[in-house]
Amino acid sequence: MPDQYTRETAAEGVENALKLLEGRWKLVILFHLFGGHILRFSELERAIPAVSQKMLIQQLRQMEKDGIVRRIVHHQVPPKVEYGLTDWGQALCPALDALLTWAAQREAAPARRQP
Rank of each mutant, 00 (worst) to 15 (best):
D3K: 13
Q4H: 12
Q4W: 13
Q4D: 09
Y5C: 01
Y5L: 06
T6C: 04
T6I: 02
R7A: 12
R7I: 10
E8Q: 08
T9A: 01
A11S: 04
A11R: 07
E12N: 10
E12P: 00
V14P: 00
V14Q: 01
V14C: 03
E15Q: 06
N16Y: 06
N16L: 13
L20K: 11
L20H: 01
G23L: 07
R24T: 14
L27W: 01
I29S: 06
L30W: 06
L33K: 00
F34V: 07
F34N: 01
F34P: 00
G35T: 01
G35C: 03
G36E: 03
H37K: 14
H37I: 02
L39Q: 10
R40S: 10
F41Y: 15
F41P: 02
F41A: 06
S42E: 12
E43I: 01
E43W: 07
E43T: 02
L44Q: 01
E45L: 15
E45T: 11
R46A: 14
I48G: 00
I48S: 01
I48P: 01
P49M: 10
A50Y: 08
A50H: 09
S52E: 12
K54G: 04
K54Y: 12
M55W: 11
M55S: 15
L56D: 01
Q58N: 11
Q59F: 05
Q59R: 13
E64P: 00
K65E: 13
D66Q: 11
D66N: 10
G67C: 02
G67K: 04
I68T: 09
I68F: 03
V69S: 05
R71C: 10
R71Y: 03
R71K: 14
I72F: 04
I72T: 08
H74S: 10
H75Y: 15
Q76W: 06
V77W: 14
P78W: 13
P78Y: 12
P79T: 09
P79C: 03
K80E: 12
E82M: 10
G84W: 10
L85T: 02
L85V: 04
T86H: 07
T86M: 05
T86C: 02
D87H: 15
W88M: 07
Q90C: 00
Q90A: 14
Q90E: 15
P94V: 05
P94M: 10
A95N: 04
D97A: 13
D97V: 15
A98T: 07
L100G: 00
T101L: 15
W102E: 03
A103P: 00
A103Q: 12
R106N: 02
E107I: 14
P110S: 11
P110Q: 13
A111K: 15
R112Y: 13
Q114C: 06
P115G: 08
